[in-house]
Nucleic acid binder design. Structure first.
Length: 705
RNA sequence: GGGCGAUUAGCUCAGUUGGUAGAGCAACCCCUUUACACGGGGAAGGUCACAGGUUCGAGUCCUGUAUCGCCCACCA
């Protein structure tokens, strides 16, 4: 028996060396795995942002994937787990800008585009190093030789190519549409980055000619020259669509036009409303339907424009009261309701109140028909007319993307139904620049800049989710026709947090559907959030963060992995409890001592049929659990068997009985294999001392075929 | 406003096709027994949110109620 077993198991001493042994073996790379492997299995790591360091959410997600990956590798598949990082354009730039603001008292405009982008790249590089070393500490068996970064050369080519092809297909267009404008960040943000916060406000009722209209935003009302009512509203049956009415408004008499539209809710207030198409999504839709004028009232900095007359140049917050006061003097204020609560849209990143604006932006048309040249997705035939939305729906409906969690599937479909065109341009500097150039009236879109002088490139960059959406195939070499792409796409499995079901999952399906005619992954298991013990989110402001590295230092990566995974049904939130991690450190030590005892025995006697059958039954159950992604159950079963049955009963019974020898070795050897995906370090370390071992445990054969 | 989910032992949660309730942690008692005190043994703890229904039988299926949570959303 090796000397090391005379002491309690100390993970800190051995984990680093074991990871190095795995890495040196080359087995993380599917091309270097031993044996004949025909079936492939692949996962692309959801790329962590380069903004920070590893948190428990990553630790959980990495553990889940590593368990699946190690299991499949041991089952003899050609296994690829591909690592990468995400530039996360807005988040990263915001972070760096904040630092510059703090340390140098400068804005990005002081530095200029080139310098800022350089600084952001430097920052991204340094935090990339940090986060990758942390991922290694978790024991993640990633193929580092295929490492990808959303802004590296290959991924850049993929992004530009994807843009070009969708542009040529007419699915990417530039248009004036209403977008979420962040006046503080001076950029548009996607619907998904808008947060709604409840706010107590004031609701005003104004006299608008013969009508009473309600609003919480008097400052937008200057340009309101349409009054909308439901066509079936009997109160207004004497007014006809298109009728002109002269009336007195904020800055004098105006001519209003009556519009009949079903968007108006008769139950709401007086049933009549005026609209501000430039600054409201709903109003914009109505204006589009009837071909109405749209006028800008508020500028990009949140100030009123000349249309506001005497209020021009004022910030909306200071103008509001003054406008109401003026209306009051004119006798146009009917009622003021102070106890009004409503949700206001704010920017997730900057916290600023979103000001909807009509702006010229780039969009992806999700409802526009196009002919798909090639499709492997059931329900979408090659050469048929389809839309991106149809692709997204069909991929999941047909089961090509297996999304077994019913609740999430419902959420997914519900979201698809309500999908608008995706605004992909962002007014920041860090990220993939839009590959479109202008010269006078000419527009050029291409992967490389146009020939000739006088061209100017579009200043905007792409939404970070554009490149993320290509991730499953851009990482495999697309747009080139690579061997990797053929072997590993569609990928086998994806396990994202439910937070990014729409943001990411659906858009991956969109992109890989359009560009490859394939789904991005065959199975998706959406997981929950890791929360603090009290159920609250981990956050900087609460200062309740737990550093995974600290947990690894204290209890070992194996214990942390078990603590995160056991008893955590995939899909629901998990409450992190340090006690649980501690308990699995004790379990690691238990396993260690089981090995110590067994290795001190002679391999004598015959394998006892009854005990073997009992163990094999467990192995079968565990295998079934693994195949059905019930990893939390598999882990718990192994824990119970090893501690409660093997250690507590079988070992005790065997004491002083040499005929048990072979049986004990049989159980230990196979237990190590079953346990390896969960606790890779300690099992590999024990395996190293097993008599007759030939290979690393990570590539040993799984006990059940 | 729409959608989704949760409610089981003090705490965190399992409970796979309906068949007499489980685990870990915590708390309690005992034991320095030769693999392990990072251990061993023992005992305790639950009208499975509530009300109906289906069934021979319901934590599990159906309907409703309550509470909590999450996601989405253009209510003037």
């Amino acid at each position: 028996m090796p000397e090391k077993f005379t002491k309690p198991y100390n993970p800190v001493e051995v984990e680093g060396a074991i990871y190095k042994k795995w890495e040196d073996s080359g087995y993380f790379n599917p091309d270097k795995l031993p044996g004949e492997r025909t079936e492939s299995f692949s996962i692309v790591l959801p790329p962590p942002n380069v903004t920070g360091s590893l948190h428990l959410g990553h630790a959980y997600e990495d553990t889940l994937q590593d368990i699946v990956i190690r299991f499949q590798r041991m089952r003899g598949k050609k296994v690829l787990w591909l690592p990468g990082t995400d530039s996360a354009a807005i988040a990263t730039q915001a972070r760096v800008e904040k630092n510059i603001q703090k340390e140098e008292k400068k804005t990005r405009h002081d530095l200029g585009r080139e310098e800022l982008v350089k600084r952001v790249h430097e920052f991204a590089k340094s935090s990339e190093t940090t986060i990758l070393s942390q991922v290694r500490k978790m024991g993640a068996s990633l193929d580092w030789s295929r490492y990808a970064y959303t802004l590296d050369e290959k991924r850049n080519l993929a992004v530009l190519t994807a843009f070009k092809r969708m542009y040529d297909a007419g699915l990417i267009y530039r248009g004036h549409r209403i977008v979420n404008w962040d006046p503080k960040g001076q950029t548009t943000i996607s619907d998904d980055e808008v947060m709604y916060e409840e706010e107590k406000g004031t609701f005003y009722y104004f006299q608008y000619g013969p009508f009473v209209i309600g609003t919480s935003r008097p400052e937008t009302k200057f340009g309101d020259k349409y009054v909308v009512m439901h066509p079936d509203d009997s109160r207004y049956k004497d007014y006809t669509h298109g009728q002109k009415i002269e009336l007195e408004w904020i800055n004098g008499p105006i001519t209003a036009t009556v519009i009949k539209d079903t968007a108006s809710d008769p139950e709401m207030g007086s049933g009549a409303m005026t609209i501000t198409p430039w600054h409201s999504m709903a109003d914009f839709e109505i204006a589009e339907r009837h071909g109405l004028d749209k006028e800008q009232v508020i500028d990009r900095y949140g100030k009123l424009l000349p249309i506001a007359g005497e209020f021009a140049g004022m910030k909306i917050s200071e103008a509001r009261e003054k406008i109401v006061e003026k209306l009051r003097q004119k006798g146009l204020v009917v009622k003021v309701d102070d106890a009004y609560t409503h949700n206001i849209a704010t920017s997730e990143r900057t916290g600023a109140t979103i000001e909807p604006q009509v702006m010229e932006q780039w969009f992806i048309a999700v409802n526009k028909s196009f002919v798909i040249p090639h499709s492997e997705i059931p329900g979408i035939t090659s050469g048929s007319e389809t839309t991106l939305k149809d692709i997204m729906r069909a991929a999941v409906e047909s089961g090509a993307v297996d999304m077994p969690q019913e609740g999430f599937r419902k959420t997914y479909f519900h979201w698809i139904e309500n999908l608008y065109d995706w605004c992909i341009s962002r007014q920041i500097w860090f990220g993939h620049r839009i590959p479109v150039w202008y010269r006078e009236q000419e527009v050029y879109c291409g992967v490389t800049p146009p020939e000739g002088d006088g061209w100017e490139q579009d200043p905007d960059v792409l939404d970070t989710w554009f490149s993320s959406a290509l991730w499953t195939f851009s990482t495999l070499g697309w747009p080139e026709d690579t061997k990797d792409l053929e072997t590993f796409h569609p990928t086998s499995f994806m396990s994202p947090a439910y937070e990014i079901l729409q943001l990411w999952v659906s858009r991956m399906i969109l992109m890989s559907g359009f560009h490859l005619g394939q789904v991005p992954f065959k199975k998706v298991m959406i997981h929950g959030l890791v929360r603090a013990k009290d159920g609250r989110k981990f956050s900087k402001s609460l200062n309740n963060g737990v550093d995974p590295l600290e947990m690894i230092e204290k209890y070992g990566a194996d214990a942390l992995r078990m603590g995160l995974i056991v008893g955590a049904v995939i899909g629901s939130d998990i409450r992190f409890d340090e006690q649980k991690v501690k308990a699995y450190k004790l379990f690691a030590n238990k396993v260690w001592n089981i090995a110590r005892f067994v290795l001190s025995q002679e391999r004598t006697g015959d394998i006892k049929t009854e005990l073997k059958e009992e163990f094999d039954a467990l192995a079968k159950e565990v295998t079934a659990d693994m195949e059905n992604y019930r990893v939390y159950m598999a882990a718990e079963k192994l824990y119970h068997y090893l501690w409660g049955r093997f250690a507590a009963e079988i070992l005790e019974e065997s004491k002083g009985k040499p005929e048990y020898g072979k049986t004990l070795y049989y159980i230990l050897e196979n237990s190590l294999k079953l346990l390896h995906p969960f606790m890779p370090f300690i099992t590999e370390e024990i395996w190293n001392s097993m008599p007759g071992k030939k290979e690393l445990l990570m590539v040993e054969e799984w006990p059940i075929k």
